[in-house]
Structure formats: C-alpha cells, structure tokens
Amino acid sequence: MDGLITVEHLHKSYRISKRGKGIPGMLANLVAPKYEKKDAVKDISFQIAEGEMVGFIGPNGAGKSTTIKMLSGILYPDSGQILVDGKVPYRQRKQYVGNIGVVFGQKSQLQWDLPVIDSFELLKAIYRIPDQTYKRNLARFTEMLDMQEFLKQPVRQLSLGQRMRADIVAALLHDPKIVFFDEPTIGVDVVGKETIRTFIRELNAQDQITMLFTTHDMQDIEKTCKRLLIIDQGNKVYDGALSGIREMYGTTRTLDLELQTEVQVAPIPHVTISRPDDSNPRKWQLQFDHHAVSVQELMGFLLATYPVRDLNISEPEIESIIRNIYGGRQSE
C-alpha cells in the first residue's frame, strides 16, 4: 500500500528580517534586503499509510510545527514534495483542507467570547457539514470526551483541559480523513491527558483516521502510537516502531545489586560499576550494554562470586532514551 501522506526532501527556511520598522527601515528593506536565514526543516522524507497513527517528536525548535504547517497547507515549502491524499496541500488548498483536521494546542480556534456550541455551529456552516453528520458527530464526541456540561459555556470561562477537548472536537466535526495534532495535551492535567489519549486512540481504531501526533510527553506517544518519527534540528533522526527504539538506542541495562556484607565488587570488563547510595555500602549499581555483555553470564558470575541479597535488572525508560538521542548531538 502506498503512503497516504508522502513527504520527500522537504526543506523550509525562515527569513528573519534584520531591518527596523517605519518607512526608513522598510525602504532599506526593499532596496537592500538584509535577512538572517534560519533552516527550520532541512531535509525530511517520510511516508504514512492510511489509518496509521504516528508520534512526531523532537526537542524545542526541531521543526515539528513547521512541518505540520506545510502538511496542512499553511506554509509553502522552499523545496521538496508533499502529496497528501493525492493533493499538494499548498496548491490545492480549498479542496484539500476540507479533508483534514488540525489541532494547534497552543492556539485555540474557538470564538473566545461565545459558548462552545456557537463555534461548532460556525464550523458547520464553514465546512458545509450536513445536519445529520453534524448531529451524529457532536453527540458522539461530546459523549466520548464528557463535554456535555460546558457546551453552553463561553470559551473564556473554560479550564485549559476543557478548552483543549473542545478544540479537538472542533477539528473533527467535518469527518476529516487525516488529522494533525500539534501538542494537543499541552498544559492539561494527568486525568485530562488520559481522556484525550483514550479518545484519540479510539478514534484511530474505529474510524481509521490517519493521525500525526506531536507532543513533548512520551506517555502520550507510548499510549497512542505504534510508530515514531523523531526529528532534530530539521532532520529526521529516527523513523520506525516505538519498540524498535529500545533496540536501537536503549541497549543499556542497569543492574541494581544489594549484598549481604560489605564486600568490594571488583572491576568487570565492559561494565560500569558505581555506588548509588553513599550511606549504604552494600548497594552497587552496574551498567552495561546488553549486546556487549551477556545478562545471563553476568548474573551467574555475580551470584557465584558475591553474597547476593537482592538483584534487579531494568530497561531504560523510553523518556530517557529520547533524552539521550536529543542530547547526543550536543556532545558530538
């Protein structure tokens, strides 16, 4: 199956004008433009199949929002190709955007002064949503997201979590085939986040809606996406299964060891040994790459050599793996 979304060698830079304001600055700008160029997206390619749900992550300023804006037809790329559902977003804007939904967690699309339901009614007219579809979707989504009690409340009176849920529904009323979420959980509390994740997961499973999901919370990704796309400084650094990332980057294992007596643990090849707790000299921590050191042999050796009271092996949290991937470039 070919990709529903195909992105090839996408590049986008922002030109930040260095001239001042006012007529003099403006004239200077027209005569001799002075820009600072900032490559937000350098060279990104990927494909997403219909019905897929992809986590899209990267550190601040990596170029995620810029990519989403190009995918949704807001920005023109400098070079490269985007084809979504057979259309070029920025060229066939009017036909295209009726098929997609976009949620920018940082920017609400609701009418600030009006009740939530009024914004929905407006969207119904804008997207030419048939009565039946509108009623069905509204009933279904408000039920799923538990929004009944604040539908008639002005948006400015809503909590952040409530506003976010309303914004998500606003992006879905017209039955989009593809939805881009740019930080739809930002600022939302734990319970609210869980509600949103469950909703997104169910929607993807039941309606086969294709989704791209940007967030800084790895729990969001772990609970919703199977596939992960990581970008950093405008380049793609990982594209594959969420589980695969452990194989690739998370090969470090941590072995926590507690001995019955105060014995010194002697150096072992390829293993970093440290004492995690100064107040307890019987506790040791061993770190190693599980491709370089066999867990089985190491454990056998430890049990045979030392008076072991307790032993525990842990895999790294996906969170810290990601942190390492991001951090890796700084040490390079």
Partner: peptide, 12 residues
C-alpha cells in the same frame, strides 16, 4: 499568526 486559521478553512 491568525492567518493560519483562514488558510485551514475550505473557503476563499
């Protein structure tokens, strides 16, 4: 950045 919203609607 509010022009974003106009661009996202299937209208002129």
């Amino acid at each position: 950045g509010e022009f974003d919203r106009y661009l996202l609607r299937p209208r002129g």
